[in-house]
Simulated assay, not measured.
Amino acid sequence: MKDQNGLVDEKCESRLYIGNLDQRITEALLLKLFSPFGKIVSEDFLWHTRGPKRGEPRGFAFIQYSTREEAQLAKEKMNGRLACGRPLVVRLASEKLLVETAVHPPKAVGEANKSGLAGSLSGQMSRSAKIAAIKNKLKAMEQESCSMKKPRQADSTACGGHLDHSSIKR
């Protein structure tokens, strides 16, 4: 992601979205699975805060590595990897944001947008961002379908177990 000056936001580039988490995966297990790829700076494991599922995991989390390279390595090695019988979905958080934006574009805000005075340039930028997000989504779907065809590594024997990282090439 870029800030207003066009510079890449390093924090966003080293932050991973981890989705499709089984309800039995704990924060400790998640950290154990992702720690071999680099220094984890922060972890956000999301929980339901209200409603009938209050206190249960939401099925996704975010992990922040100290560098973009560590995050990229973890993404490459862990996306599609089985954990508790489910293939993990691992993307850079910025990629997740692009996909979300394409599926659910932000609502127009301000009088200029309401009155139609917003320039066509903003429409073009929005369209090109949507196209880029759709391309990323298609690429991710292709990678997921390829990983489904041939198992990458056996699931951990018990959900509380861990993946064997000794076979992973760095």
Rank of each mutant, 00 (worst) to 15 (best):
residue 3 D to E: 00
residue 3 D to W: 01
residue 3 D to A: 03
residue 5 N to M: 11
residue 6 G to K: 05
residue 7 L to M: 11
residue 9 D to T: 03
residue 11 K to Q: 12
residue 13 E to C: 04
residue 14 S to V: 05
residue 15 R to M: 09
residue 17 Y to E: 02
residue 17 Y to M: 09
residue 19 G to F: 05
residue 19 G to R: 02
residue 20 N to I: 04
residue 20 N to E: 09
residue 21 L to N: 11
residue 22 D to V: 10
residue 23 Q to Y: 15
residue 29 L to S: 12
residue 30 L to I: 06
residue 31 L to V: 08
residue 32 K to T: 10
residue 34 F to S: 03
residue 35 S to R: 10
residue 37 F to L: 01
residue 41 V to K: 14
residue 42 S to R: 09
residue 45 F to C: 04
residue 46 L to R: 15
residue 48 H to E: 02
residue 50 R to T: 14
residue 56 E to F: 15
residue 57 P to K: 12
residue 59 G to M: 05
residue 59 G to E: 04
residue 60 F to I: 08
residue 61 A to Q: 02
residue 62 F to M: 03
residue 62 F to H: 10
residue 63 I to R: 02
residue 63 I to S: 00
residue 64 Q to P: 09
residue 66 S to C: 13
residue 71 A to T: 01
residue 71 A to M: 06
residue 72 Q to C: 07
residue 72 Q to I: 10
residue 72 Q to R: 14
residue 73 L to D: 04
residue 73 L to F: 13
residue 77 K to H: 11
residue 83 A to D: 01
residue 84 C to Q: 01
residue 86 R to I: 07
residue 86 R to V: 13
residue 87 P to A: 00
residue 87 P to V: 00
residue 89 V to Q: 08
residue 91 R to F: 15
residue 91 R to A: 02
residue 95 E to D: 11
residue 100 E to Y: 12
residue 101 T to V: 07
residue 102 A to D: 02
residue 102 A to E: 04
residue 102 A to Q: 04
residue 103 V to D: 09
residue 103 V to R: 15
residue 105 P to H: 15
residue 106 P to K: 12
residue 106 P to W: 09
residue 108 A to K: 09
residue 109 V to R: 05
residue 111 E to P: 01
residue 113 N to S: 15
residue 113 N to R: 12
residue 114 K to Q: 13
residue 115 S to H: 13
residue 115 S to V: 15
residue 118 A to W: 00
residue 118 A to P: 12
residue 119 G to C: 07
residue 120 S to H: 10
residue 121 L to Y: 00
residue 123 G to R: 13
residue 126 S to K: 13
residue 128 S to Y: 09
residue 128 S to P: 01
residue 129 A to C: 06
residue 133 A to I: 04
residue 133 A to Y: 07
residue 134 I to D: 08
residue 137 K to A: 12
residue 139 K to R: 10
residue 139 K to A: 11
residue 139 K to N: 14
residue 140 A to D: 15
residue 140 A to K: 03
residue 140 A to S: 11
residue 142 E to V: 13
residue 143 Q to I: 15
residue 145 S to G: 05
residue 147 S to P: 12
residue 150 K to T: 10
residue 152 R to T: 10
residue 153 Q to E: 05
residue 157 T to N: 14
residue 158 A to F: 04
residue 158 A to C: 12
residue 158 A to M: 15
residue 159 C to G: 14
residue 159 C to N: 06
residue 160 G to S: 15
residue 160 G to N: 14
residue 161 G to P: 07
residue 164 D to I: 01
residue 166 S to W: 00
residue 168 I to K: 04
